[in-house]
Lab assay of single mutants.
Amino acid sequence: WIARINAAVRAYGLNYSTFINGLKKAGIELDRKILADMAVRDPQAFEQVVNKVKEALQV
């Protein structure tokens, strides 16, 4: 799951650890299995999560 998430978030200019930190700051409580599945099956929803994380990180 970690490898999938890392590959997906790198397309948005983040790395895995920064993304996970941003999830916590944004108050998003999705587990890694769901995030990895979302990255593959629903990229639009995953992009929305990434955008919320970037807002929380102020990137």
Rank of each mutant, 00 (worst) to 15 (best):
Q48D: 09
A26R: 03
V9D: 00
F19T: 00
N51S: 10
K33R: 10
K25P: 05
D37W: 12
D42N: 10
A56H: 08
Y12H: 05
I28M: 10
V9Q: 00
G27Q: 11
I5S: 00
Q48K: 13
Q48W: 12
V9I: 09
Q48P: 02
G22P: 01
L14M: 11
A36P: 05
G13S: 04
L30W: 07
A11Y: 06
I2P: 06
A45W: 12
R10Y: 08
A8N: 02
R41D: 14
G13L: 02
N51H: 13
A3W: 04
R41M: 13
D31F: 11
N21M: 13
Q48A: 13
M38V: 05
I28Y: 09
A45N: 10
I2F: 12
A45E: 10
T18H: 06
D37E: 11
P43D: 04
I2M: 04
G27P: 02
G27D: 07
Q44D: 12
V50A: 04
M38S: 03
Q58C: 08
A26I: 07
K52W: 10
Q48G: 10
L14Q: 01
A11K: 14
A36H: 08
R32Y: 12
D42Q: 10
K54E: 04
I34H: 12
Y12S: 02
R41G: 12
L14T: 01
F46N: 00
Q48I: 14
D31I: 08
P43E: 06
A56K: 07
E29I: 13
I34M: 14
I28R: 03
V9E: 00
D31Y: 08
N6V: 03
M38Y: 07
K52R: 14
V59M: 09
V40S: 13
Y16N: 01
L30E: 14
D31W: 06
I2T: 01
R32F: 14
A7F: 06
R4G: 03
L30M: 14
K25Q: 11
R10H: 09
V53I: 05
R41S: 12
R32G: 15
K54N: 06
D42S: 11
R4F: 10
G13D: 06
S17W: 15
K54P: 00
E29W: 12
L57I: 12
L14N: 00
L30F: 13
A11G: 08
G27T: 06
F19G: 00
M38W: 08
V40W: 13
K52T: 09
D37Y: 15
Y12K: 03
Q58L: 11
A7K: 15
A45G: 13
T18G: 07
N6G: 09
L35D: 01
K33G: 09
A45M: 12
I5V: 04
L23H: 01
E47I: 06
I28Q: 05
F46V: 01
A11N: 09
W1L: 15
R32E: 15
R32N: 15
A56M: 07
V50D: 00
Y12G: 01
E29C: 14
N15T: 13
V50H: 01
R41K: 11
V53D: 00
K25M: 10
Y12Q: 03
S17V: 08
L30N: 06
R10Q: 11
I28E: 04
N21W: 14
E29V: 14
Q58W: 07
V59C: 09
M38D: 02
K54W: 06
R32S: 13
L23W: 03
N15Y: 06
V49D: 00
N21V: 13
K52F: 09
E55R: 10
R41F: 11
I28N: 03
G27I: 04
F19S: 00
A11Q: 13
V50R: 01
N15D: 06
Q48L: 15
N15I: 10
P43W: 06
E55S: 12
Y12P: 00
V59N: 10
I20E: 06
Q48V: 13
E55V: 13
N51F: 15
V49I: 14
L23M: 12
S17I: 14
K52G: 05
R10V: 10
A3L: 04
K52E: 13
T18W: 04
R4Q: 14
E47G: 09
R32K: 12
K52C: 08
Q58T: 09
W1R: 06
R32W: 12
K33F: 10
L14P: 00
Q44F: 13
E55G: 10
N51G: 10
A26P: 01
Q58D: 11
A39E: 02
R4V: 15
I2K: 10
I34G: 10
K33M: 14
E47Y: 08
L23E: 01
D31M: 10
G27E: 05
V40C: 15
R32P: 15
D42F: 08
G22A: 04
L35Q: 01
L35E: 00
A56T: 10
Q44I: 14
L57T: 08
F19Q: 00
I28H: 04
E55W: 13
A39I: 13
I28C: 07
G22S: 03
K52Y: 08
A56W: 07
Y12A: 03
I5A: 01
Y16P: 03
E55P: 02
D42I: 06
R10C: 05
I34R: 12
D37G: 08
A26D: 01
Q58A: 12
T18D: 05
I5E: 00
V53S: 08
A3H: 05
N51C: 06
A3P: 05
I34Y: 15
V49N: 03
K25G: 07
A3I: 06
K25H: 11
A56I: 10
A39K: 02
I5L: 13
V59P: 15
M38Q: 06
A45D: 06
R41C: 15
Q48T: 06
G13F: 03
A45S: 11
V49K: 02
L35C: 03
L57C: 04
L14A: 01
P43K: 06
N15F: 05
N6A: 12
G13I: 01
K54S: 06
L35A: 05
N6L: 04
E29L: 14
L35V: 05
Y16G: 09
L14W: 04
I28W: 05
S17Q: 12
V53K: 00
Q44V: 10
L14I: 08
I5T: 01
E47V: 08
A3R: 11
A3M: 04
V53Q: 00
D37H: 14
A8Y: 06
A8M: 04
K52N: 08
Y16L: 05
K24W: 08
G22C: 03
K52S: 10
P43R: 09
A3C: 15
A26W: 03
L14R: 00
I34D: 08
F46R: 00
F46M: 03
N15K: 08
I28F: 08
K25Y: 06
A36V: 09
E55A: 13
K33C: 08
Q44E: 08
E47R: 11
Q44Y: 09
A45I: 10
L23V: 07
L30Q: 11
V50C: 06
E47D: 06
V53T: 04
R4E: 15
V9P: 00
N6C: 14
K33I: 12
A56D: 04
T18Y: 04
K33H: 07
Y16S: 03
W1C: 15
I20Q: 05
V49A: 04
K24E: 07
N6K: 15
L30S: 07
V40R: 07
M38H: 02
S17R: 15
L57P: 02
L57K: 03
K24V: 10
R41Q: 14
N6T: 15
E55I: 14
M38F: 05
R41N: 14
A56V: 12
D37T: 12
V50M: 04
D42E: 10
E47F: 08
A11R: 11
E29S: 12
L30I: 14
E47K: 10
N6H: 03
V59W: 08
I28S: 04
I2R: 14
Q48N: 11
G13R: 04
L35Y: 05
D42V: 06
Y12T: 02
R4Y: 05
N15V: 12
Y12I: 02
F46G: 00
Y16T: 03
R10A: 13
V40G: 13
V50F: 02
N51A: 09
V9H: 00
A7D: 14
M38L: 12
G22L: 03
E47W: 04
E47M: 11
G13N: 11
V53Y: 01
K33N: 07
W1M: 15
P43F: 06
L23T: 03
A8G: 02
A39T: 15
A26Y: 02
K33T: 06
